[in-house]
């Protein structure tokens, strides 16, 4: 069984969000880069668990990005995974990225493709669905559980107001979220092993991006909290009703 795990580089959750170049670029100064948490905690760790249950399985990681993505790819390899592929490009359009991953997927003939439910920077929740369409496979969005029995998967996914349990034959594309697995910390052996694991760099296929980022904008700063005395909740109710019009 071959598993492909899609990994994206994102700024750490606690990063200061600021922009440069006339608000057209994310300000990377002082930013700590991490593996997108949904890619790491849920999809990669679940893939590793599947391999632990079936040692014949192989896990490949794929990222679409420039050389700056290599440290996080090595970290992902330290958690697990047999080799990594980096598609060398700066382009950030979701369709462009999905097309690159779909190309890698077609070449590798994977049974299972995992993505995180979204990246914490762009919040598009788009790559999994696009990849599934481009490789013509079923798509399980927002999965909270994934179990494998031979070549049939049993999945639980989030739907509006609840959850749905379903069965699907491989190959399948799954977007993973909380519930799939628990976060792991790479150990020293994993970190050492990751240094020598293959990290293939491939050129992107020619494809037109369908979107481009024009500019960024920060929300207006909050006016600051209006504090109400604990013995005067009626005043809070009045403010919420008359000023904020929230109740």
């Amino acid at each position: 069984m071959k598993i492909l795990v899609c990994v994206s580089k994102t700024p750490d959750t606690t990063s200061k969000i600021a922009f440069t170049d006339g608000n057209t670029k994310f300000d990377e100064a002082g930013v700590q880069w991490i593996i997108n948490p949904y890619d790491e905690w849920y999809s990669l760790v679940r893939a590793i668990e599947l391999k632990e249950a079936n040692p014949a399985a192989t896990i490949h990681l794929v990222t679409v990005g420039n050389a700056d993505a290599e440290p996080i790819i090595r970290k992902a390899l330290a958690l697990g995974g047999d080799e990594a592929i980096r598609v060398n490009t700066d382009n950030s359009d979701a369709y462009f990225i999905a097309a690159q991953i779909a190309e890698v997927a077609k070449q590798g003939g994977y049974d299972l493709i995992f993505t995180g439910k979204e990246t914490i920077d762009y919040n598009g929740s788009s790559i999994g669905g696009m990849v599934a369409e481009l490789v013509d496979a079923p798509y399980i969005s927002l999965a909270t559980k994934f179990d494998l029995n031979g070549t049939t998967a049993t999945v639980v996914r989030e739907i509006d107001g609840g959850e749905e349990t379903a069965e699907v034959a491989l190959p399948v594309v799954v977007s993973c979220q909380k519930g799939m697995a628990e976060q792991r910390i790479p150990n020293m052996r994993g970190i050492m092993a990751a240094r020598t694991k293959p990290l293939k760099v491939v050129d992107p296929i020619a494809i037109d991006a369908l979107t481009s980022i024009h500019s960024f904008e920060l929300p207006p700063a909050k006016a600051g909290v209006k504090l109400v005395a604990p013995d005067n909740v009626a005043e809070l109710v009045r403010l919420l009703h008359e000023e904020a019009k929230a109740i």
């Binding site: 788009s126 696009m130 369409e133 739907i159 977007s175």
Partner: peptide, 23 residues
């Protein structure tokens, strides 16, 4: 951009080769 939209919109966009703004 609810759970259904997250399941479907991106797939439709890829099928139609349409640019997507999600969210």
């Amino acid at each position: 951009h609810n759970q259904t939209g997250k399941a479907v919109a991106a797939r439709v966009a890829a099928k139609l080769k349409a640019g997507l703004v999600a969210g």
